[in-house]
Design a protein around this nucleic acid. Structure first.
Lengths: 115, 115
DNA sequence: TTAATACGATACCTTTTGGTATCTCTTTTG
DNA sequence: CAAAAGAGATACCAAAAGGTATCGTATTAA
């Protein structure tokens, strides 16, 4: 009765940030152009405070970065978090090719730390 | 003040399932071998009921499938959910190559439905 | 056939999450 | 300078999430 598998704090923050549909929509918006909090809020049915909270979580997941410009905060898409999540998922790609199944087992057994 | 971007229900279920560290650990376990609920529970510091709840969410995200064998339920890794999440994220890959930035804007503007 | 095993279902509890409202601070702008 | 605009901080609330305990059902094994 123990957790025993290596967990990556960065991947956790990225996946957590990606789990909310509003946050994923924010990322799509920011893929078009950098936007301030007020500008982003115009596109969502919620208050600026709520959008700001989502932006904080996206920042913690390193999916966006924030640049200060006077009284404005400009939100910008960031690669790091995407790459963290993609890297975690890429481990599983091998399992969809049945030819590699035998090799899989050896690698998988190394990724998992037994208790 | 409106949500305006296309959202995919499958991607939502997959990302939601991936957001929890216990569930990601379950997926790693299942990458080694198919396991019953009871077998999985041995590796985690929680009750069978809790593990079962996680398995339901993983199934809804199409990250696993369940096969009945007598009184046992055997949990098996499934590609669909992974591919859903990876497909959603792959849209952003283009933004990390600055050479493609000009092309980006045109594509992005099509992906987003204006209000 | 009786008992143990594997699991499902339900009710319940606590913490987290997603949201609001309100007040304050800083930076622009007229 | 005064006022408006952009954003931070805090308190608060309802719902969802993650967990437990308990009881019931079906399947296997002694």
């Amino acid at each position: 009765m123990q957790t025993s598998i290596v967990e990556n704090a960065q991947a956790q923050n990225a996946f957590k940030a990606l789990a909310d549909p509003t946050r994923r929509n924010i990322l799509l918006r920011l893929s078009v152009e950098d936007l301030t909090i007020a500008e982003l809020t115009q596109h969502f049915p919620m208050t600026r405070a709520a959008v700001k909270k989502h932006l904080l979580i996206l920042e913690q997941g390193q999916l966006i970065s924030v640049r200060v410009n006077g009284r404005e905060k400009i939100n910008h898409l960031e690669a790091t978090g995407f790459k963290d999540a993609q890297a975690w998922m890429s481990y599983f790609d091998q399992f969809w090719d049945s030819k590699l199944m035998a090799l899989n087992m050896a690698i998988a057994n190394q990724q998992i730390q037994n208790d």
